[in-house]
Design a protein around this nucleic acid. Structure first.
Lengths: 164, 164
DNA sequence: GGAGTGTAGTACAACTTTGAACTAACAGTT
DNA sequence: AACTGTTAGTTCAAAGTTGTACTACACTCC
């Protein structure tokens, strides 16, 4: 959009250059995530959300996380996570158990099938990430991308939530 | 996930450093887009998709685009765009007219109300983008981000679709 | 030990997105 | 003109997502 709105008070518009960068970012990210989603779905039947759930669980000592931790890590709403985990439970990838320390809580554990599914899916997903992102950029570019987005993330989460 | 899969053939895993960058990127981008979506929704009632539709239309001489062009620009599926435009038409933001040159086609035009809606929404959205992205980074960082994602985008679209 | 407040997770209903199937129209061939 | 293949856009049903409301438990502090 290019317009002069003379009555605007304090908004500082983006420069033409900034607009170009912003669009590249938005468009590139959207297409990248869509491509990764599609390839993972085709090759393994998993959505990237399900894949990420498995990854998080796989990184804990007992392959278990509380629902809320999982939701925070993934930046998903509680409601959305409940649905995702229910579906994954139906597929036998995870199982839910009441939490002993806090009777309100629910522990979500990765099953052996979930683990096998992740091990089977990881190579092709990693390859996709390489193909469309990592290997397309120079190492310095990729590092700069990561650093910049880490700054953005920290700013958004108020410095908390170092996990994701 | 950290595992050694001895039987894997040719997959090159990400280094620890690359994994960190990849997660920062994924997590930062997800949170950023979610935040922008929320703020735009709260402040104007528009979704970012609807906003983007209006932006694209506003940039053409006659505030009109074919459905397919719109879908390509936004990297949305045809089906999704049909739904979005139907909803926007119900709100009076756009209108659809059969295309004269190609009787299969449909021209989507921005109404005056659509234009006014965009003009009213733009300042706060621009401010959000500044607050959470542009002003959080150094100009060099932001430019590098844009350049990197442009490279990613071009790679994904095979160099075509310069518009987005 | 009971009231009030906050947190964990689920259920529900409305809405959005997806992918496949479908209709209509163009374009090239013979 | 009929035949084939392609493109434009919509429709349909299934699946996913959202926000709110709800239940259950925990924490505090009087």
């Amino acid at each position: 959009m290019t317009t002069d709105t003379p009555t605007q008070q304090t908004v500082e518009w983006l420069t033409a250059e900034q607009q170009v960068h912003w669009r590249s970012f938005r468009g590139g990210a959207a297409r990248l995530f869509a491509a990764l989603e599609h390839e993972l779905e085709q090759q393994t039947g998993l959505s990237t959300h399900e894949y990420e759930v498995l990854v998080r669980l796989s990184e804990t000592p007992d392959r278990t996380l509380r629902m809320a931790q999982l939701a925070d890590n993934l930046a998903h709403s509680r409601s959305r996570l409940t649905h995702t985990i229910r579906r994954m439970e139906e597929q036998g990838l995870v199982s839910r158990l009441p939490c002993v320390e806090d009777a309100r809580g629910v522990n979500c554990t990765m099953t052996e099938k979930g683990w096998q599914t992740l091990v089977a899916a990881a190579p092709s997903h990693v390859q996709s990430v390489r193909d469309h992102l990592v290997d397309v950029l120079t190492p310095a570019q990729f590092a700069a991308l990561g650093d910049a987005m880490e700054t953005v993330r920290l700013h958004l989460t108020g410095g908390a939530c170092h996990v994701e």
